[in-house]
Measured scan of single mutants.
Amino acid sequence: HTVDVQGVTYHFDNPEEARKFAEEMAKRLGLQVHVKDGRYKVE
């Protein structure tokens, strides 16, 4: 499970961890979480 944050890619084994990380980063950076091709993108 992959999370892209402003061009940096993070990998997680656990989909729940990936989702939480994406939401946390989006909140911290004031950005949105998009799901695209099964990847989380924070932009």
Score class of each variant (00 low, 15 high):
1 H>M: 12
1 H>T: 14
1 H>Q: 08
1 H>I: 11
2 T>I: 15
2 T>F: 15
2 T>E: 13
2 T>P: 14
2 T>H: 15
2 T>S: 13
3 V>D: 00
3 V>A: 03
3 V>T: 03
3 V>H: 00
4 D>G: 04
4 D>V: 07
4 D>R: 05
4 D>M: 07
5 V>Q: 01
6 Q>I: 14
6 Q>E: 13
6 Q>H: 10
6 Q>M: 14
6 Q>D: 07
6 Q>R: 09
7 G>N: 08
7 G>W: 04
7 G>M: 04
7 G>L: 04
8 V>N: 10
8 V>F: 11
8 V>C: 15
8 V>I: 13
8 V>G: 05
9 T>Y: 12
9 T>K: 08
9 T>P: 08
9 T>I: 15
9 T>W: 09
9 T>H: 12
10 Y>A: 04
10 Y>E: 03
10 Y>D: 01
10 Y>T: 06
10 Y>F: 12
10 Y>N: 04
10 Y>W: 08
11 H>I: 14
11 H>D: 09
11 H>L: 12
11 H>E: 12
11 H>K: 10
11 H>T: 13
12 F>R: 00
12 F>L: 03
12 F>Y: 05
13 D>V: 10
13 D>M: 08
13 D>H: 09
13 D>W: 08
13 D>L: 10
13 D>N: 11
13 D>C: 14
13 D>S: 10
13 D>F: 09
14 N>K: 11
14 N>W: 09
14 N>L: 10
14 N>A: 11
14 N>C: 15
15 P>C: 13
15 P>S: 13
16 E>S: 10
16 E>T: 12
16 E>G: 09
17 E>L: 09
17 E>A: 12
17 E>Y: 07
17 E>N: 11
17 E>K: 10
17 E>P: 05
18 A>M: 03
18 A>V: 02
18 A>N: 00
18 A>D: 00
19 R>A: 08
19 R>T: 05
19 R>W: 08
19 R>I: 07
19 R>G: 06
20 K>T: 12
20 K>G: 10
20 K>A: 13
20 K>W: 10
20 K>N: 13
21 F>E: 01
21 F>I: 02
21 F>V: 03
21 F>C: 06
21 F>K: 02
21 F>A: 03
22 A>K: 00
22 A>W: 01
22 A>M: 01
22 A>H: 00
22 A>C: 05
23 E>S: 07
23 E>Y: 15
23 E>W: 14
23 E>H: 14
23 E>D: 09
23 E>M: 11
23 E>N: 10
24 E>P: 00
24 E>N: 09
24 E>V: 09
24 E>L: 11
24 E>W: 10
25 M>H: 06
26 A>L: 01
26 A>N: 01
26 A>Q: 02
26 A>C: 05
26 A>G: 07
26 A>E: 02
26 A>R: 02
27 K>Y: 09
28 R>M: 13
28 R>A: 12
28 R>I: 12
28 R>V: 11
29 L>M: 07
29 L>H: 06
29 L>D: 03
30 G>V: 03
30 G>S: 05
30 G>Y: 03
30 G>D: 06
30 G>P: 00
31 L>T: 05
31 L>P: 00
31 L>Y: 07
31 L>V: 06
31 L>K: 03
31 L>I: 04
31 L>C: 12
31 L>F: 08
32 Q>G: 06
32 Q>W: 05
32 Q>M: 09
33 V>K: 01
33 V>M: 06
33 V>G: 01
33 V>S: 03
33 V>Y: 05
33 V>L: 07
34 H>S: 13
34 H>D: 05
34 H>E: 07
34 H>V: 14
34 H>M: 08
34 H>F: 08
35 V>L: 12
35 V>R: 05
35 V>E: 11
35 V>Q: 07
35 V>S: 06
35 V>T: 06
35 V>N: 05
35 V>W: 14
36 K>C: 13
36 K>R: 12
36 K>S: 10
36 K>V: 15
36 K>H: 13
36 K>W: 03
37 D>A: 04
37 D>W: 01
37 D>S: 04
37 D>I: 01
38 G>E: 05
38 G>D: 06
38 G>S: 04
38 G>H: 05
39 R>G: 15
39 R>T: 08
41 K>N: 12
41 K>S: 14
41 K>I: 15
41 K>A: 11
41 K>R: 13
41 K>H: 15
41 K>E: 14
41 K>W: 15
42 V>Y: 02
42 V>F: 03
42 V>A: 02
42 V>H: 03
43 E>W: 06
43 E>G: 14
43 E>T: 10
43 E>I: 08
